[in-house]
Measured scan of single mutants.
Amino acid sequence: SADYSSLTVVQLKDLLTKRNLSVGGLKNELVQRLIKDDEESKGE
């Protein structure tokens, strides 16, 4: 998976916004949300 932890919070929020995901929470939560979304989209 992508190394989201190396991105800035601003970059993470931009990715979340593009996916229509919540941008609330700490950086670690944003990273986990993106990883979870990646895993769910692979399952389709």
Score class of each variant (00 low, 15 high):
residue 1 S to M: 14
residue 2 A to V: 15
residue 2 A to T: 13
residue 2 A to Q: 13
residue 3 D to Q: 08
residue 4 Y to P: 02
residue 4 Y to R: 01
residue 4 Y to G: 02
residue 4 Y to H: 03
residue 4 Y to F: 04
residue 5 S to C: 15
residue 5 S to Y: 11
residue 5 S to K: 09
residue 5 S to T: 12
residue 6 S to R: 10
residue 6 S to Q: 14
residue 6 S to Y: 08
residue 7 L to N: 04
residue 8 T to Y: 00
residue 8 T to I: 02
residue 8 T to V: 03
residue 9 V to E: 12
residue 9 V to Q: 06
residue 9 V to S: 06
residue 10 V to T: 14
residue 11 Q to Y: 02
residue 11 Q to R: 04
residue 12 L to R: 00
residue 13 K to N: 07
residue 13 K to R: 12
residue 13 K to M: 10
residue 13 K to E: 08
residue 14 D to M: 07
residue 14 D to Q: 09
residue 14 D to C: 13
residue 15 L to I: 10
residue 16 L to I: 04
residue 16 L to Y: 00
residue 16 L to W: 00
residue 16 L to A: 05
residue 17 T to W: 06
residue 17 T to A: 15
residue 17 T to L: 13
residue 17 T to K: 15
residue 17 T to R: 15
residue 18 K to H: 08
residue 18 K to N: 08
residue 19 R to Q: 03
residue 19 R to M: 02
residue 20 N to T: 04
residue 20 N to R: 09
residue 21 L to Q: 04
residue 21 L to P: 01
residue 21 L to F: 00
residue 21 L to R: 04
residue 22 S to G: 09
residue 22 S to C: 10
residue 22 S to R: 08
residue 23 V to N: 09
residue 23 V to T: 15
residue 23 V to S: 10
residue 23 V to D: 09
residue 24 G to T: 15
residue 25 G to E: 03
residue 25 G to H: 02
residue 25 G to A: 03
residue 25 G to I: 01
residue 26 L to R: 11
residue 26 L to M: 12
residue 26 L to F: 08
residue 27 K to C: 06
residue 27 K to D: 04
residue 27 K to H: 09
residue 27 K to M: 07
residue 28 N to T: 11
residue 28 N to V: 10
residue 29 E to Y: 00
residue 30 L to V: 01
residue 30 L to F: 02
residue 30 L to K: 01
residue 30 L to P: 01
residue 30 L to S: 00
residue 31 V to R: 05
residue 31 V to L: 08
residue 31 V to Y: 01
residue 31 V to E: 06
residue 31 V to G: 01
residue 32 Q to P: 01
residue 32 Q to W: 04
residue 33 R to I: 04
residue 33 R to S: 03
residue 33 R to D: 01
residue 34 L to Y: 00
residue 34 L to F: 00
residue 35 I to Q: 09
residue 36 K to F: 08
residue 36 K to R: 13
residue 36 K to L: 10
residue 36 K to A: 12
residue 37 D to M: 05
residue 37 D to Y: 14
residue 38 D to P: 01
residue 38 D to W: 05
residue 38 D to N: 04
residue 39 E to M: 14
residue 39 E to Q: 13
residue 40 E to W: 10
residue 40 E to Y: 11
residue 40 E to T: 12
residue 40 E to N: 13
residue 40 E to K: 14
residue 41 S to P: 09
residue 42 K to W: 10
residue 43 G to L: 13
residue 44 E to L: 14
residue 44 E to V: 13
residue 44 E to Q: 14
residue 44 E to I: 14
residue 44 E to P: 13
